[in-house]
Design a protein around this nucleic acid. Structure first.
Lengths: 335, 335
DNA sequence: TTGAAAGCGATACCAC
DNA sequence: GTGGTATCGCTTTCAA
């Protein structure tokens, strides 16, 4: 008994007027008499007429929707950015649809290619890990060539010409390291599960820079890397033969693992070993001790992204912008 | 200098053959000669031809994409379900697009209405809090009437006829309460920020059922409710004049707040006060003490949802199903 | 004030 | 083997 949405054609048949009249009446065209407008609108309401979005978009060549392509939502940074995007997008007449790539190049390319051929007007995108490793960006350049501007954020591609929004990763970790050094710490280890992507490398660079400025020679041993699954045991292993007086986690997994390992060693935090790192602001206060974190300010990033993209859509030829937003060191009890 | 995607028409003009020939050649129709196929395909590749998805979908009346409408992604349950959905959807020829309602009725209705008119073939949906409060489901019935089946999960609407996937909330909290009672606890308090939605009420019901079976008279005071912002102070307030020997958190916010309050009181966990509750599996092991949680098994829920929806799409007239999946009590050190 | 017709881009039936 | 034409549902220009 199901019937698909009623169309203009069917309405026109019922009312015995032309399709154009129906269309104009529903769109409140001044060409149409008050009376027929009423009649048409009543009929449309009665049948719960909803215009076919596909047809309308095909005709107009614009969709007023933006795709947000994210590597994962199991990472609070990206959900924060999403929140920022949403709070800003509601102020516009655009909609968003979200696509999760699960760090897969394949899915990213497929999503972008698919969505760029009619479905959306533009993209907000942070590349998947695999894309960064593969260094294959054809889908991105194709979308841009196809008039679908991209605003890249966080995991951006240097060589792609587009608007970009970044956190200052290097500076943030530099500041964190500096803060620990100034507080008297001398032997700082870092843990990371993201050392193969640019963001992770920048963060490590900040660490190195701070050490250097303090005249401390870098010991590569103090840079502990691993996967999400292995990082905990890597840190454990490290702690068997090393006793740093501070840890910096370069991502949430690494931070939580470091915190746990240090606690399991029964080291006093922060007196014996301080712990600082990237982690969700919702979780940090619930940890013991409350964790000093580096907050990337995802909401602000999201809002900035939307503004850039809307501007770009309005004015496709303006010069590309690169906005760098500062991360914030939130001092709590673990340092 | 930007040009939009090249179309069949333009290709046909360049090659001097008809549009139909181009179309057929690209679709490997047996009607077309090998030679022209080669020529057409080369030209298409050269110009990076991509078919317009809108046009194709408009013609075919199907889109092979499914909308996933979620209240929030700042809740690990939903991101887990999303993960489950994705692992299952990749096995099909469907795509998903995600829409976040932010617990707003307005956004939910808008998304569903917009997407159901051409963009997607069906929905996976968990209603927003506001929708449950308002009890306005016109957008849902409209979508269903419009041949866009919905699989509802978690926050489902009883009166809507559709496939449904649920966790057994009542049973899960019943089991958790029972487990605490059997371990010798006698005065169990619960904390909840979701007491105004059905899920929360079911969980509370499980608590009550267990108490009753144990012959313990319910004290309404022991049911602490609040918003995400207020729940912590509500629990603090409660603990000023009450000393339960166990806490159950009915959602992550409530659970973490209860844990924190109990810790701040310097009660020994779990000897003096046990703490059990809904919380993300990634966080629970990092808390002190490691938290005993109720795991909703979001991944399995996600996979089940997809299977149901794909079946429904293939066979729109089959009877509606309601699948209830069990939650799992993960015992750790806080109980 | 209303209607006919072209067109958005792709597909498919039917001639030739 | 190839091309013309109708069609999906809607908007819009131009005629009447």
């Amino acid at each position: 008994m199901k019937k698909s949405n009623i169309t203009l054609k069917e309405l026109s048949k019922i009312l015995g007027v032309s399709i154009s009249t129906i269309s104009k009446a529903l769109n409140d065209s001044p060409e149409i008499s008050h009376d027929t407008k009423i009649k048409v609108k009543e009929l449309a309401a009665l049948h719960n007429y909803q215009p076919n979005v596909l047809a309308r978009n095909l005709k107009s060549g614009t969709t007023k929707t933006i795709a947000v392509v994210l590597p994962t939502v199991k990472n609070n940074f990206f959900t924060e950015v999403l929140l920022g995007i949403e709070t800003e997008i509601v102020k516009t007449d655009y909609n968003i649809i979200i696509s999760i790539t699960n760090e897969s190049f394949e899915k990213e390319a497929q999503s972008v290619n698919n969505l760029s051929n009619g479905i959306v007007d533009g993209f907000i995108l942070s590349t998947s890990e695999e894309t960064q490793v593969k260094q294959n960006f054809n889908h991105l350049t194709a979308a841009i060539d196809n008039n679908k501007p991209i605003v890249m954020f966080d995991r951006v591609i240097k060589t792609i010409e587009s608007d970009k929004v970044l956190e200052d990763n290097r500076e943030a970790v530099y500041k964190a390291t500096n803060y620990l050094l100034k507080s008297g710490k001398k032997h700082i280890a870092i843990a990371s599960t993201i050392n193969n992507i640019t963001v992770g490398k920048s963060r490590t660079a900040g660490y190195k820079k701070a050490l250097e400025e303090f005249g401390i020679t870098l010991n590569e041993n103090d840079i502990i890397t691993g996967s999400q699954d292995s990082i905990k045991s890597e840190v454990d292993h490290y702690l068997k033969t090393n006793k740093p007086d501070a840890f910096i986690g370069l991502d949430e997994d690494a931070t939580l693992s470091a915190l746990k390992s240090v606690k399991q060693k029964n080291y006093n935090i922060p007196q014996e070993v301080a712990v600082v790192g990237y982690a969700n602001q919702n979780i940090a206060p619930h940890l013991t001790p409350e964790l000093t974190t580096i907050d990337q300010n995802g909401i602000e990033i999201g809002r900035t992204i939307v503004k850039l993209l809307i501007d770009r859509l309005k004015n496709p030829t303006k010069p590309y912008e690169k906005v760098v937003l500062p991360s914030i060191l939130c001092k709590r009890l673990s340092s």
